[in-house]
Amino acid sequence: RPRTAFTQNQIEVLENVFRVNCYPGIDIREDLAQKLNLEEDRIQIWFQNRRAKLKR
């Protein structure tokens, strides 16, 4: 699968959610997927990668 290119707006929304909860449940991820026009699994991976970035 090709790399997902997130828009600046999508990143802002994801970062705002991350600040509140870095482990969002499936319900939050599915809601975000619908709002941001992305697949839920892409959102899940984004949070996984963002948590890894935080640990660095």
Score class of each variant (00 low, 15 high):
Leu54Gly: 15
Thr4Glu: 15
Ile43Val: 07
Gly25Trp: 02
Gln10Thr: 04
Arg51Lys: 04
Glu12Met: 04
Glu39Phe: 03
Gln34Asp: 08
Arg19Ser: 07
Tyr23Asn: 13
Gln48Cys: 05
Leu32Val: 03
Arg29Val: 12
Phe6Trp: 06
Ile11Asp: 11
Arg50Trp: 03
Val17Met: 08
Asp31Asn: 13
Trp46Cys: 00
Gln8Ala: 14
Pro24Thr: 00
Gln44Leu: 10
Pro24Tyr: 06
Arg56Val: 09
Ile26Val: 11
Arg42Ala: 13
Ile43Thr: 04
Glu30Phe: 12
Arg56Cys: 12
Ile43Gln: 01
Trp46Phe: 04
Pro2Ile: 15
Lys55Ile: 13
Glu39Asp: 15
Phe47Ile: 05
Cys22Ile: 13
Arg19Leu: 01
Val20Cys: 08
Asp41Lys: 09
Arg51Gly: 03
Asn16Arg: 06
Phe18His: 03
Arg42Glu: 14
Phe18Tyr: 10
Arg42Asn: 12
Ala52Gln: 09
Gln34Thr: 12
Lys53Cys: 05
Asn9His: 13
Glu39Gly: 09
Phe18Pro: 02
Phe47Pro: 00
Ala33Cys: 09
Glu39Leu: 05
Leu32Cys: 00
Gln34Ala: 06
Gln34Cys: 06
Pro2Cys: 12
Phe47Tyr: 05
Ile26Glu: 08
Arg51Ile: 07
Tyr23Arg: 06
Ala33Ile: 02
Asp27Trp: 04
Asn16Ser: 11
Asn21Cys: 02
Glu30Asp: 09
Leu38Lys: 03
Phe6Ala: 01
Arg19Thr: 12
Ala33Trp: 02
Leu54Thr: 11
Arg3Leu: 12
Asn9Arg: 11
Glu40Ile: 08
Asn37Leu: 07
Glu39Ala: 09
Glu12Tyr: 08
Val20Gly: 09
Val20Asn: 14
Val20His: 11
Ile43Ser: 00
Phe18Val: 00
Leu54Cys: 11
Leu14Met: 07
Arg3Thr: 12
Arg29Gln: 07
Phe18Met: 00
Asp27Gly: 11
Arg42Trp: 13
Ile26Gln: 12
Gly25Leu: 01
Glu39Val: 03
Asn16Leu: 04
Phe18Asp: 02
Arg29Thr: 14
Tyr23Cys: 12
Pro2His: 15
Glu15Ser: 01
Asn37Cys: 09
Glu30Thr: 13
Phe47Trp: 00
Glu15Phe: 00
Asn9Ile: 13
Val17Pro: 02
Asn37His: 07
Gln44Pro: 00
Leu36Glu: 00
Asn9Phe: 08
Arg3Ala: 14
Asp31Pro: 03
Glu40Lys: 03
Arg42His: 11
Gly25Val: 00
Glu30Met: 09
Thr4Trp: 05
Pro24Asn: 02
Glu15Thr: 02
Leu36Val: 00
Ile11Met: 03
Trp46Asn: 07
Asn21Arg: 00
Asp41Ile: 11
Cys22Glu: 14
Asn21Pro: 00
Asn49Pro: 03
